[in-house]
Amino acid sequence: MTDEGFDVGGRLRQLRLARGLSQRELAKRARVTNSTVSLIEQNSVSPSVSSLKKILDALPVSISAFFAGEETSHPRPFYRASELTEIGDGKLSWRLVAARRPDRRMSILHERYPPGADSGAEMLEHDGEEGGVVIAGQIEITVNGEVGMLGAGDAYYFDSRLPHRFRNPGTEECVIVSASTPPTFSDAGQELPHA
């Protein structure tokens, strides 16, 4: 779930304590078990994007703000591959460009879906728009009941408030470069975002 050196548990604990919440109260607000919050804070488990998103919505903090931390210098225009922030769940890889850039108005992701990967059986819905281009492999995207199978060079663009899902039914990894706005992925209370 994390890029090297990012302490998910420590960051969650910091945000929870800053809001004066107990683990139990945060779990109740997020509708997850108390042990889920505890295990994540101890870095004993790598949370799925869905679980982490539920917890962050209860704070409320966006996924991008969670991983952003503090920008230590002025915004810069270029980022090396090693500087992209991993916000995936250990199965799906979603690497965010310029995660620590202050006042970012969009999210750009380098996404990797291994064979069989799925954004989840529960359809995603959040404010904003998103689009992307398939770089390699194939991806099945469902948007508001319409299913499309996209291959390298194909693209998508849709209103993110429509129920949607991403799935790789193929035998090779699918790579996508995507963008979404606003960068917060969803408003508090919504379920798992797709970047």
Rank of each mutant, 00 (worst) to 15 (best):
A179Y: 08
P163A: 01
F185A: 00
H164W: 05
E71S: 14
S44A: 14
G5M: 03
S73A: 03
F66E: 00
T36I: 01
E146H: 14
R76S: 10
R24V: 04
D187M: 08
I176C: 08
R104Q: 03
R29C: 12
S38D: 07
S62W: 00
Y79I: 07
P47A: 01
P114G: 01
G128K: 09
R100T: 11
L39M: 15
P193V: 06
S22D: 03
T2D: 13
Q23S: 07
L96Q: 07
S180E: 13
N34I: 06
S119N: 11
S107A: 15
L150N: 00
G189H: 12
I108R: 07
E140G: 07
E71C: 15
S178K: 08
I40Y: 11
R100A: 15
E111T: 11
I40K: 12
P115T: 06
H164Q: 07
S48K: 08
E70R: 10
Y157W: 06
A121T: 04
R29I: 03
A27W: 06
L96V: 01
E122S: 10
R105E: 09
G90H: 04
S48Y: 00
L84Q: 12
S93K: 13
A155W: 05
S178W: 03
R80N: 14
G132C: 11
K91F: 04
S44D: 15
R13H: 09
K28H: 13
R19E: 03
W94G: 10
E191G: 10
K54T: 05
S38K: 14
D7Y: 11
T2P: 00
V175Y: 11
G10A: 08
H74S: 04
V97E: 13
I87H: 02
P47S: 01
L17V: 09
R80G: 12
D118P: 02
F158R: 01
L162A: 08
R76H: 10
S51F: 02
T33F: 06
